[in-house]
Computed example of a mutant assay.
Amino acid sequence: MSTATSALPDAAALADWLRAHVRPFHGGVQIEPLTGGQSNPTYRVEAGDHRWVLRRKPPGVLLASAHAVEREYRVMRALADSAVPVPAMHVLCEDAAVLGTPFYVMDFVEGRVFARPDLPGLTPAERAAIFDAMNGVIAALHAVDVDAVGLGDYGRPQNYLARQLDRWTKQYRASETAAGLERHEPMERLIDWLQANRPDDEAVALVHGDFRIDNLIFHPSEPRVLAVLDWELSTLGHPLVDFAYHVMTWRVTPEEFRGLKGHDLAALGIPDEAAYVAAYAQRTGRPGRSGLDGLPNFEYHLAFNMFRMAAILQGILARSRQGSAASADAERTGRQARPMAEAGWRLVQQLEQRRAA
């Protein structure tokens, strides 16, 4: 979840609003920033025996369609009775006059959040169980009947990849221009290759857009996911693009972006990429297929996600330079944009070499 370097919400105004819209209580509220992410400022709010989480848009000028707390609220509320675990949602406030920007309030979920995918401090058996639970949740997400949960109009699934390429290219260039950042040639080559090689595949599902282990809350002692967080990039889109983003963890190093590349996975008890992909393929109805054979165009989707992550990181860097970043370590995080783009371009070069062989 996200931290906030901007001023805390007005405690008196928030207490009045919570009493009127969530539940009555006596006295004031205590507000504490929650740490972990880079997008929307997020706080734990306590009032007596009540504990909530408040998540709001950051202040300042924002890129178009970014920081969509309204969409986060809608999708988590829609998933309340599904197989995808989410916090209980209370109320959305779109009136910026209350706290300065729109926000929503949800239950505080007590549990474990793992910042690193190598899960230091756990046993190999515990790590294996955590990864299996995570695999089951993303498979369940992609199996959600969007019409049944009221999300049939949650996005425009047609031409998903084309629109995503256009959106993130525009946001990348807008960040580059706004913050006066230098042109990065590997990113430019990656963009050109993705545009020229885009596959024609229109599979549709509800997608999270940022499904990583640190966006999940696990049970305090069991290998069970209690809540999936940070839904601001969710939409109707291609499930394999969403899954490839998740699997990108196996393709990048910790230095490039919170990856597993370079770790001894067998010693850790963490499944290798092929085994993890095969488990997802089995869970999502691709029996008899294993590894990349069950997921068409999967390496294209991996390269696309490295491009998209580079664009997101560029936005974080731009916000840091402009003084409107949500996290205190935004500059360091944003500097990972270039290594991520370079990793994507290396993957493309390897794919092209295999095609030519």
Rank of each mutant, 00 (worst) to 15 (best):
G121L: 04
G121T: 01
L122G: 15
L122Q: 15
L122W: 15
L122P: 11
P124T: 11
A125N: 02
A125S: 10
E126N: 05
E126D: 11
E126A: 15
E126W: 05
R127G: 10
R127T: 11
A128M: 02
A128H: 07
A128I: 02
A129T: 08
A129H: 01
A129G: 01
A129K: 02
I130C: 12
I130V: 15
I130M: 14
I130R: 14
F131C: 05
F131K: 06
F131L: 12
F131R: 07
F131I: 13
F131G: 01
D132T: 11
A133V: 13
A133I: 14
A133Y: 12
M134Q: 12
M134L: 11
N135Q: 06
N135G: 02
N135I: 02
G136Y: 01
G136W: 00
G136P: 03
V137A: 10
I138G: 06
I138Q: 14
I138D: 07
I138S: 13
I138K: 09
I138A: 10
I138E: 10
I138P: 03
A139M: 03
A139K: 00
A139H: 04
A139D: 07
A140R: 14
L141I: 08
L141R: 04
H142I: 03
A143D: 06
A143Q: 09
A143N: 03
V144D: 02
V144A: 04
D145F: 01
D145Q: 07
D145E: 05
D145N: 10
V146T: 06
V146L: 00
D147N: 08
D147H: 11
A148S: 01
V149E: 03
G150W: 06
L151Y: 03
L151H: 05
L151E: 02
L151A: 01
G152P: 08
D153N: 10
Y154R: 09
Y154H: 07
Y154F: 15
Y154P: 09
Y154N: 07
G155I: 14
G155W: 07
R156Y: 05
R156N: 05
R156H: 07
P157W: 13
P157L: 13
P157A: 08
Q158F: 02
Q158V: 05
Y160N: 14
Y160E: 15
Y160S: 13
Y160L: 15
Y160T: 14
L161M: 07
L161Y: 05
L161E: 05
A162K: 08
A162W: 04
A162T: 08
R163Y: 14
Q164E: 11
Q164Y: 13
Q164T: 06
L165D: 01
R167E: 10
R167Q: 11
R167F: 11
R167L: 13
R167T: 08
R167G: 00
W168S: 00
